[in-house]
Simulated scan of single mutants.
Amino acid sequence: MRTSLLLGTALGTALALSSFAAQAADLVVDDAVAAAAPVSNAYAGYVAVYGSSTESDIWGDSYNPWVGFGIDAAVSYWLDNSLQVELEATVSTARESEYEEYGFTSSRAVGHLNWSAGDYSLGGFVGVASLPSYYYGNSYGVLAGLEGQMQLGDAFVIDGQIGYLSSTDGYYHGDGYPLGVAFGQIGVKYFPMDNLMLAANVGAIKGNVYGDGYDMADLTYGATLEYQLENTPFSVFASYSGTVGSEDADFDGSNQTIKIGAKFSFDGLSLKDQATSGASHKVMDLTSVDYNGYGW
């Protein structure tokens, strides 16, 4: 009986060691493959199109609404498990519907670099922008700033940014006025489901946009609802945003914008994963410089 027990113990030990060795071999192979393979979902991005309608009180009721459309696109790449680069670009246009004589076209391209550590990331951005000038064509500027985001629990993502947009060329540039605006925003995204997002943000824009004695100081706000169709890369969204100008500023107008559109994401991620692992960084909406400040 003792012999049988020893044989059984030896056999069990041999089987356990064999199993352990096999698992260890698998781990070595898996580690080697993981080290050589690129980061999972290294590429991410999207293309979105939308229609918009804007009411701007600074232009008067006879010019409203301003109707237009826009295209947003972004692509990001994880250089490693903690460093992400991203390029975003946007073009938007709007024309007043009453006389159809006046219109705005704005565009920008921005590069982002962010370092991620677990539930949060920190980084910065730099880019170029084109804004309409009230009297002559478009004006151009550069923008730069800092940004960050943090995941709270399983359903919330908070993000924030601060930056500055400075004129480099345009109708008023070179007249001795330091044309530029500082801006900042904080936002929160809530995901009751992986593919349903409710988002809101508040921010501010302040600076000189028109020359000596023409300052703007706007509070901004917005809300977005987005739903990604099950097992598809397509989502639909609607947003409401606006600005309220300070009565102490030279440009104290306000505007409200409604957007409805669709988005195609090519990364295979849910909306919740896109908010932290995808092309999730975007400079805040600066179109109130167009509507409230007449651009540069």
Rank of each mutant, 00 (worst) to 15 (best):
G68V: 08
G145S: 08
S82Y: 04
A14C: 04
A94W: 09
E55M: 11
S97W: 07
S130I: 00
A89T: 01
S133F: 02
L87I: 10
V110I: 12
E101I: 01
Y46S: 03
I71S: 08
Y99N: 13
V39D: 12
V142W: 12
F20P: 07
L122P: 15
T93K: 05
S107R: 04
A109V: 08
S82E: 13
L113W: 02
P65I: 02
S106V: 07
R108A: 11
R95F: 03
G60I: 14
G68I: 09
E55W: 06
D72M: 01
V67G: 06
S97M: 07
S82R: 15
A21K: 04
W115Q: 13
D61C: 08
G103E: 04
S139H: 03
S53K: 14
Y136T: 00
Y120V: 13
G70E: 09
E55Q: 09
A35M: 11
S62H: 07
A44W: 11
A44V: 15
I71G: 07
E96V: 13
N138P: 05
P38R: 06
A109P: 09
T105R: 06
G141M: 01
I58A: 12
Y99S: 13
V28K: 03
N114L: 10
A24I: 10
F20C: 12
L143D: 01
G103K: 00
V91Q: 03
R95K: 07
Y102L: 01
L87H: 01
S107V: 03
G12R: 14
A42R: 14
A89K: 00
W115F: 13
R95T: 03
A144D: 11
G45E: 03
D26C: 10
G111S: 05
T13W: 04
R95V: 02
D119Y: 05
W66A: 02
G103T: 01
V33E: 15
S92V: 14
S139F: 02
G103N: 05
W66M: 01
